[in-house]
């Protein structure tokens, strides 16, 4: 299929052009300024030189991102279920949920350091806070947006509240939940990185990518900083990729957002 081929060729071509422009800019710079923009080759070389510290930092960040992300999923699901029960509960809690989302991480971080100390715990909490909001809002919206006809059908058959939630509302909320999950999956590695940057610690196994970024920049290891960015990108792609895969597994055979070939 030519269209399928285009899907690979076009992004690849964009990448090649991007790298060419990159080299062009680099070699048009004054020699003494060239350290500002390392070449892709130099970045790859920096992976070799800093492989150990990068790998360790990436693992730590992944751990923080995963724990915060997982915590956000569990707690947001429980909270969304509670919120979906009544509009009174929603009215009572929404302003405070918004507040939680409004507090910037850079203000929250020093408070967290006071409370739980720097390191993994703070990183997990910050990741949790960043992922939590889109999940809770989307899932709640899904739970209360169930097709009215179906709700009436369930009430007519005299389904009890639990059956209504488990058999009707939860399945109908899945597409909304996965929308929230995709947003949260993008945010989780970023959240862990920012958390690490603001509340990370070298204690124990040496901190994550955010902490490593501070060290590289203080050592003027610019290629390593670019390498850190690349690792973060890969991490983000992995998170989103897994969520997209899960979403496909859960939805593809019944939801309209997926094209079906079989009839």
């Amino acid at each position: 299929m030519p269209k399928r081929l285009l899907h690979f060729l076009l992004p690849a071509a964009t990448g090649v052009i991007f790298i060419l422009v990159w080299y062009a800019i680099r070699f048009s710079m004054n020699e003494e300024m060239q350290f500002l923009l390392p070449t892709p080759g130099e970045i790859i070389a920096s992976f070799r030189d800093n492989g150990d510290s990068l790998a360790r930092a990436a693992l730590n960040t992944t751990e923080g991102a995963l724990l915060g992300f997982a915590g956000a999923i569990v707690i947001s699901a429980a909270l969304a279920l509670t919120l979906s029960l009544s509009s009174l509960i929603r009215i009572s809690l929404y302003p405070y949920l918004m507040m939680l989302q409004m507090i910037p991480v850079i203000i929250f971080a020093p408070i967290l350091i006071l409370w739980v100390g720097p390191g993994l715990k703070s990183v997990v909490v910050i990741t949790f806070l960043i992922c939590f909001f889109p999940l809770v809002v989307n899932t709640t919206q899904g739970l209360i947006s169930t097709d009215r006809n179906s709700v009436e059908l369930f009430r007519m058959y005299r389904a009890n509240r639990l059956q209504e939630i488990l058999l009707l509302r939860v399945p109908a909320a899945l597409p909304y939940f996965f929308t929230g999950l995709r947003i949260a999956a993008v945010l989780a590695p970023i959240g862990a990185l920012v958390g690490d940057y603001t509340a990370g610690s070298s204690a124990g196994d040496g901190g994550g990518l955010g902490f490593q970024a501070i060290i590289y920049s203080s050592q003027a290891k610019y290629p390593a900083l670019f390498a850190t960015a690349a690792v973060t990108c890969v991490l983000g792609f992995v998170f989103v990729g897994v969520v997209v895969g899960l979403s496909w597994l859960a939805l593809h055979h019944w939801h309209d957002s997926y094209e079906r070939t079989d009839t």
Binding site: S150, Y157, A159, L167, P171, H255
Partner: peptide, 22 residues
């Protein structure tokens, strides 16, 4: 009903079983 009111996530068989659950 006019709009069928079938549950999208469940198979034809499970949709038919629905009234017996309650």
């Amino acid at each position: 009903f006019q709009g069928f009111n079938l549950l999208a996530r469940t198979t034809a068989l499970e949709n038919v079983e629905l009234p017996m659950l309650y």
